[in-house]
Design a protein around this nucleic acid. Structure first.
Length: 302
DNA sequence: AAGGGCCTCAACCGCTATAGA
DNA sequence: CTCTATAGCGGTTGAGGCCCT
């Protein structure tokens, strides 16, 4: 049996949509709802391919689409998410209400990418572009600068002995307060969850400049004394770095579909080694070592 | 005013994932 | 298990607008 093409080649229209075509598509979807894209064009009286109709609706006509310029907060979120997820535009779009993957992709390619380059940051790796006249610092020397934030995370993780959940971590990093609030209400089994670890960590690293996730200027809350000595806290102030923390979390986030209490393999790491390490998870847990084992090429600026 | 170069972004293309028969 | 239909994703293209000379 020959597979039918998604649209008849004859008489199919391509290119920009006219207002009349938009009206027909909107009217049809309002009456019959989304879906059935293959048969939709004929039923709606459109000489378009079903795929074209779906795209037009999803990227332009949907009523919940937010148009207009991206806010600084949205810029910040996209950059953070791109550092974590790469070119996963659809995944990134789920964190920006009213923005489509196509819009974010275009905005990244035309604006954010250039802006990062101008700042001397490689838009692919989110690491400083190797250039001695920019910084004079070799990447290998930068590893230690992230130890402050890693130590916070490590200490909290040690206290609560938790496993890690990818999606929750992502939500907390980008400052998705809904995720934090939702789970904090459900206090039954959060004690041993990723949420506990990261909410604790986020709480300790008080954000001082923006409301979205870890800002450029983190300070430490008074609760930090629960985890560190005064000397350590003093040292921490010189080392805490949200970019470093994000890079470290990135290694953990590479565990696809992890759920609390379960850690799955990452394509970026040696799974057998990680599982061996996790088997030895105990009071002496060293998250910094764990993170390093996931991604040995971390390098950040402070 | 003309036209050439650059930029933006809607739309397309090719591919993969998934559901269901 | 295989195959088809459908939805969705990410990369790429090209029309149109803007700016500069």
């Amino acid at each position: 049996m020959v597979r039918t093409p998604c649209c008849k080649e004859e008489g199919i229209k391509k290119g920009a949509w006219t207002p009349e075509e938009d009206r027909k598509l909107i009217a049809y979807i309002q009456r019959h709802g989304e879906g059935g894209w293959r048969t939709l064009p004929e039923k709606a009286g459109l000489k378009r391919c079903g795929k074209s109709c779906r795209l037009r609706w999803a990227n332009y006509l949907r009523p919940d689409i937010k148009r207009g310029e991206f806010t600084l907060e949205e810029d910040d979120t996209i950059i953070k998410l791109h550092a974590l997820k790469g070119n996963k535009w659809a995944a990134i779009a789920t964190y920006l209400a009213g923005r489509t993957d196509n819009e974010i992709k275009n905005y990244w390619n035309t604006n954010l990418k250039k802006r990062l380059k101008q700042k001397g940051i490689d838009p692919t790796t989110h690491k400083p572009i190797k250039s001695t006249d920019q910084t004079g610092i070799e990447p290998k020397n930068l590893k230690l600068s992230s130890s402050g934030s890693a130590r916070v995370l490590n200490r909290v993780a040690s206290k609560y002995a938790v496993d890690l959940n990818r999606d929750l971590v992502t939500g907390i990093i980008i400052g998705n307060s809904t995720i934090v609030a939702d789970v904090s209400q459900n206090s039954v089994d959060v004690e041993n969850s990723t949420t506990t670890l990261l909410n604790k960590t986020a709480g300790l690293m008080t954000n001082t400049s923006t409301s979205s996730g870890f800002s450029d200027n983190c300070s430490l809350s008074d609760d930090i004394t629960e985890f560190f000595s005064n000397e350590e806290i003093s040292d921490m102030y010189t080392n805490v770095d949200h970019v470093g923390l994000m890079e470290e979390l990135k290694g953990m986030l590479s565990y696809e579909n992890a759920v609390p209490g379960e850690i799955k393999g990452s394509p970026e790491a040696n799974i057998a080694d990680e599982m061996e390490f996790l088997d030895s998870w105990n009071d002496d847990l060293d998250l910094e070592k764990f993170v390093s084992s996931l991604d040995s090429s971390i390098g950040v600026f402070v």
